[in-house]
C-alpha cells in the first residue's frame, strides 16, 4: 500500500504544479515555463546526485529508455501547456486525465500483462466517470 501514499502525494503536487503553470501562462509562453521548469528541476537533481555521490549511469538500455521517455514527455507536456494556454484549466485537465487513464490502463493490461480484477475495472470506470462528470 506504500505506492498509494507516493501516488497521492505526487497527485497533489502535480495538480498544484499545473495550476501554477496556468497562472504563469497569462504572461509567458509555454516554452519558457517548461524550459525553466526543467532547468531548476535538473539543477536540484544534479546537486542531490553530487551530494549523495550516486551513479547516474544505469546501463545503455535503461539510459536509452529514460531518454526515449524524455522525448515523449517533451512533446506531451508542451502540447498540454499549449492546451492550458488556450482554454479553462477545469476543462483541459480532466479531458487529458480521461485519455491518460484509458491509454495507460490498456497498455498495462495488454502489453505488460498486468492482472485484471473486477475491482481494477470498477476503479478505472469510476476514475473515467469522475473525469467525464468534470468535463461535460
Amino acid at each position: 500500500m506504500k505506492w498509494v501514499y507516493y501516488a497521492l502525494m505526487a497527485m497533489f503536487l502535480q495538480g498544484t504544479t499545473i495550476f501554477l503553470v496556468k497562472t504563469q501562462l497569462s504572461n509567458n509562453n509555454p516554452y519558457s515555463v517548461l524550459f525553466f521548469q526543467y532547468i531548476f528541476g535538473l539543477s536540484a537533481l544534479s546537486s542531490y546526485f553530487l551530494f549523495k555521490k550516486e551513479n547516474i549511469f544505469i546501463g545503455k538500455k535503461n539510459v536509452s529508455l529514460a531518454i526515449l521517455s524524455g522525448f515523449f514527455v517533451s512533446i506531451g507536456l508542451i502540447s498540454y501547456y499549449l492546451a492550458i494556454n488556450e482554454t479553462a484549466l477545469s476543462i483541459v485537465a480532466p479531458v487529458r486525465g480521461t485519455g491518460f487513464i484509458l491509454l495507460t490502463s490498456i497498455m498495462g493490461i495488454t502489453i505488460l500483462k498486468e492482472k485484471l480484477s473486477l475491482k481494477k475495472i470498477m476503479g478505472v470506470i469510476f476514475c473515467i466517470l469522475s473525469i467525464i462528470f468534470l468535463t461535460i
Binding site: W3, V4, A7, L8, A10, M11, F12, L13, Q14, G15, T16, I18, F19, K22, A88, L89, S90, A93, P94, R96, G97, F100, I101, T104, S105, M107, G108, I109, L112, E114, K115, L116, K120, G123, V124, C127, S130, I131, L134
Partner: peptide, 20 residues
Amino acid sequence: DLSKAAPVFNLSSTVSAILG
C-alpha cells in the same frame, strides 16, 4: 502496477480543476 499508479496520479487533473 502501471494500471494502478497511473490512474491515481492522473487524478491530479481533479486537483488542478478544483484549484482553477
